[in-house]
Simulated assay, not measured.
Amino acid sequence: MPDTPPSPQSTPVDPDQVRALRAFNRFYTQRTGLLDPYLGSAFSLTEVRVLYELAHHTPCTASELGRRLLLDAGYLSRIVRRFTGAGWITRSPLPGDARQHALGLTPQGRAAFEPLQQRSRDEAAHLLAPLAPDQRQALVSALARAQRLLAPDAPAPARTAVLRDVRPGDMGWVVQQHGEIYAREYGWNSEFEALVAEIAAGMIRRHDPAWERGWIAELDGERVGSVFVVRKSETEAQLRLLILSPAARGLGLGARLADECLAFARAKGYRKMVLWTNSILSAARAIYAKRGFTLVHSEAHHGYGKDLVGETWELAL
């Protein structure tokens, strides 16, 4: 009979492979700034991970937090106590079990964490920037494969999707996403990005918080979509700049963004909502049609380097 292949546990590990893995660990921690202090901040990597978990998985008990981060209970308790003293963490009795407390970030805690998260995003983008698009995808695929090999039984991580208010810096991201996505998927030229930049600038300058609002969709802490309600008149609102990045499609976020707009407009007493789009944007048109919008006018035009058909849609509220 043929020999039975040795189990992974009984297979000796090649010392050269051990050295290779350790060499990669040293390379990666140096290149990504993971050594203390974290990315030049006053925090350790562990402290930033605590803030990250509380920003994206709340409410969360201390025991749950410890399991996620594989932290010693005493060490974690000292971090939580210090952050609570700084006014960054809230503690409230867990419903159904008064012996445990649900932890969450206060607005001050989120304000402390957000610059660190943005710095981490910027550092990751800086590492990927020199690579060609196919090289970036190859690297991301290799990292995903490494994660599956090292944790084959781990369940797929739950994705966290939230809609939040617009913050400083978001409008620049909205303009960038419109420029990149429409160039890549429809071949539109920079005229479109310029138009979106003008719209965004006007919305910032003339924003009326009593009657207008915007939302940013985040998936696992990353911006993936946007939408805005602007006031056209006392009775008419306009839906603007609805966009969703490819990585977030198919999760219902586009529909959620549209529904938030409609709920806000109805609560404010608007009688009608209007929007302008183009006939080739089939996914967006499907969202509008499903919510009762009707096409009231269409007109051929040449814009953004393409022959297009512009459309006006309306919905009585």
Rank of each mutant, 00 (worst) to 15 (best):
V48S: 09
L71T: 01
P133H: 02
Q135I: 03
A125G: 03
A129G: 03
Y38H: 08
Y75D: 05
F43G: 12
V48H: 10
L35V: 10
R91L: 12
H57K: 06
I79R: 08
A132K: 13
G85S: 08
L76Y: 06
R110N: 12
E114R: 15
C60H: 10
P107M: 00
H101E: 14
L128K: 03
W88P: 08
P59R: 03
D72E: 11
G40P: 11
H57C: 06
L69F: 02
I89T: 04
A55D: 14
A102C: 06
R68A: 03
R31Q: 14
T46L: 12
A42L: 12
Q30I: 00
L35F: 11
A132D: 13
G33R: 00
S120G: 09
W88Y: 13
A73D: 13
A98D: 11
A55Y: 11
R68H: 09
F113Q: 05
D36L: 03
A132T: 13
S120Q: 15
Y75C: 08
L45T: 14
A86D: 13
R67S: 09
A73C: 06
S41F: 14
S77H: 09
L103R: 03
P107G: 01
L45N: 10
G104H: 02
S44M: 04
R82W: 08
S41R: 11
G74I: 01
R81T: 09
L128Y: 06
F113C: 07
V50L: 04
A102I: 01
G96F: 01
R67N: 08
Q118T: 15
Y75S: 07
G66I: 07
P133K: 03
L51G: 05
T61G: 00
Q117I: 13
A132S: 13
T29H: 04
G74F: 01
T61R: 05
G66N: 06
A42M: 12
Q30F: 00
T32R: 05
P93I: 00
P95N: 04
G74M: 01
Q30Y: 00
Q117V: 14
S92I: 01
G85W: 01
S63Y: 06
I89K: 08
H57T: 07
